[in-house]
Amino acid sequence: MSHPVLQALLPVVILIAIGYYIGKKHWVSANGTKDLSNVVFLVLAPALLFRTMSNVHLEDIDFRPVLVYFAAMWLVFGAVLWKLHFTRRAAVLGLASTFSNTLMIGVPLVSLTYGEEGLVTLFALVSLHAFVMLTMVTIVLELALELENARHGKAPKQRRSITTRLVGLGHTLFKAAKASLLHPVPLPIVCGLLFAQTGLKLPSVIDQPLQLLGAAFSPVALLLVGASLAVTTLGGHLRVALLLVGMKNLFHPLVLALLGLALGFSGVPFAVMVLTASLPIGANVYLYAIRYKVAEQEVVAAVALSTMLGLFTVALVMLLVGYLP
């Protein structure tokens, strides 16, 4: 029980299991789960993110491991896109192979494993994670949609000029970028960093409530993960789901680790990036599958299976991370 991997992972497993039991017992209704999700994302997460980053100075953050993380992500995403050809389905499955659940599982796990130092590195990634990845995949999906429409003769009756198409694409990208920046995850990180640069300290009357709310985030988020798993079915997409789990939970962190080692990276920031790459698939992937009407059931199955098997694959990656320099 004294092994550091067990010490970090076991509380996560227990809380997810309790949440699963709560879901199976229907102690929280479907609407109640949605309400709880709003509390986690709109109240608890911003409190934790803002308070943590309000004491961090930009010169103390090493963004180089974050750049390596994105490089590995683009390599894996590009490989999926090449293998499945340039289609909406390929883009969504590529996103599923690279987009981590950095908040609900990543924050508690990194906090237990690496403490405040690890969280600062993780939040540096989280501040850019959704913006970079979702903007990128929006570009790919919009271009793929145009190509599919052209291939199948579904282009608009009135042929649009290249200028009109570019303006439409630009409008879509602007909306995606705006939504990513004003999201309740990156926004408090940026606000916290800006506040930290002023050199001011939060008054205790504000700091203490934020501390209490932030402390509630990890247990409530993990209970919510378990409750969500209790009402999710895998359907008939087990094979695709298993392939995506292999790509996301194992291949993605492997590519990141090899790339980082080749570039001479080491230490806690690099270990945090490898661990983050091994996290289960994030829920935002499902939102894109719904929006572009492709691979919805495959993604639902993959997110659920990735989270369930993630308890084992993350443990394996954590053991191997211990051998990194």
Results as ranks from 00 to 15, higher is better:
Glu59Arg: 14
Asp60Trp: 01
Leu125Trp: 02
Lys293His: 14
Trp27Arg: 12
Leu194Trp: 01
Ser228Ile: 10
Ala90Phe: 02
Gln197Tyr: 00
Thr307Lys: 01
Leu169Pro: 01
Pro65Met: 03
Ala130Tyr: 08
Asp60Glu: 14
Gly153Glu: 06
Leu112Arg: 06
Met73Glu: 10
Lys154Gly: 15
Leu254Tyr: 03
Ser278Pro: 07
Ala196Ile: 08
Leu15Arg: 04
Pro184Asn: 06
Ala47Tyr: 04
Leu279Ile: 12
Leu254His: 04
Leu238Asn: 05
His85Phe: 08
Ala304Thr: 08
Ala130Lys: 10
His237Arg: 11
Phe41Tyr: 12
Pro253Glu: 05
His171Pro: 06
Leu320Arg: 01
Gly235Pro: 03
Met104Gly: 09
Asn31Phe: 09
Pro11Glu: 03
Leu259Arg: 08
Ile206Ala: 12
Val245His: 01
Glu296Arg: 14
Leu212Ser: 13
Val43Trp: 00
Ile18Ala: 11
Leu287Asn: 14
Leu309Ala: 07
Phe312Leu: 15
Thr164Gln: 15
Ile162Ser: 13
Tyr20Ser: 09
Trp27Tyr: 10
Leu95Phe: 04
Ser127Met: 13
His237Lys: 13
Ala283Cys: 10
Val40Leu: 03
Phe77Gln: 06
Val190Phe: 09
Leu229Asn: 05
Glu148Lys: 00
Thr232Ser: 15
His183Gly: 07
Gly168Tyr: 06
Leu81Ser: 07
Leu75Tyr: 04
